[in-house]
């Protein structure tokens, strides 16, 4: 369980002016929940995720994961990056085994676990390729395998499919669902896509911009497992209603934003 309370952060922008990225965020993520986070650009989604990952400091508030306060990165959390962040000189196998190697897991064991996960994300046979030889979708499969290899309790994903094409994204969504359904863990998944947020999430957190705050949390009462019938699910009444509702809220936020141009300049 992740508990976030009163989380605040103000950055100093390049011109010296303060940018309030998070203005008091309270959020509880349940064990083995798939939580998706949606919000306008610049509302502090990445900032919040990096804080959970222990990569970013904050000014006030508290984050605990499994009851332990976050003081830095830890083996219970791993992150999947939008730009993949693969080591370009290392093979797929070495990239996937990277976290295990840092932890000092022996070569035989980490190779076995890495191979296992490479197969799980559908990349068997590509073990000795380098990232430069892979498509974007394949690279993110490597990123996911690397994150799962360390057997985290929490998977933090920052727009993981934002940099791949539409068709690949749909495949990756289904694959991620299948992996998660077979092997549950807590996921915090940031996205710009309402459809993606609803398709994947148990709940969708809607954040508002400047300062970043939780605007609404929407339950997604769609049946699981979802990976087997994504098409049918997308035609269901609940799915259509929830995405429509999310878009209404987001559009309002964008309009408020347009009405306050001085704030826009801050970004």
């Amino acid at each position: 369980m992740i508990e976030i309370s009163g989380l605040r952060k103000t950055f100093t922008g390049q011109d010296g002016a303060p940018v309030q990225a998070l203005g008091g965020v309270d959020l509880t993520v349940r064990d083995d929940e798939f939580l998706t986070v949606l919000g306008p650009s610049g509302c502090g989604k990445t900032t919040m995720l990096k804080m959970i990952a222990g990569l970013q400091t904050w000014d006030a508030g508290e984050i605990t994961v499994g009851g332990r306060p976050v003081r830095g990165p830890g083996p219970d959390r791993s992150m999947v990056f939008q730009n993949f962040a693969l080591l370009p000189w290392a093979t797929v196998l070495d990239n996937v085994a990277f976290g295990l190697r840092l932890k000092g897991v022996g070569k035989a064991e980490r190779t076995e676990r890495a191979r296992d996960l490479i197969a799980k994300v559908g990349l068997a046979g590509f073990e000795s390729k380098r990232p430069g030889e892979l498509s974007g979708g394949m690279q993110q499969r490597v990123g996911i395998a690397r994150a799962l290899a360390v057997e985290p309790q929490v998977l933090l994903m920052d727009e993981p499919f934002g940099a791949v094409d539409e068709q690949t994204r749909r495949l990756l969504q289904e694959e991620l669902l299948a992996i998660w359904e077979a092997n549950r863990l807590t996921v915090v998944f940031i996205t710009h896509s309402m459809e993606e947020a609803v398709l994947l999430g148990d709940r969708v957190v809607l954040m508002s911009a400047r300062p970043g705050q939780i605007a609404e949390i929407v339950d997604v009462p769609l049946d699981r497992p979802r990976s087997s019938d994504v098409g049918g699910l997308e035609r269901s009444r609940e799915y259509v209603e929830i995405t429509a509702h999310l878009w209404d809220r987001l559009r309002d936020m964008h309009e408020e934003h347009r009405a306050a141009p001085s704030e826009q300049a801050v970004r």
Binding site: N83, A85, L102, K103
Partner: peptide, 26 residues
């Protein structure tokens, strides 16, 4: 982002330099 990735997997300073920074800079 490579440095950040390595930090997220718990790399210490020595691992950061030898496993990520020097290869990337090579």
């Amino acid at each position: 982002h490579l440095v950040e990735m390595a930090r997220s997997y718990g790399a210490n300073e020595w691992q950061l330099v030898t496993r990520v920074i020097l290869p990337a800079a090579s």
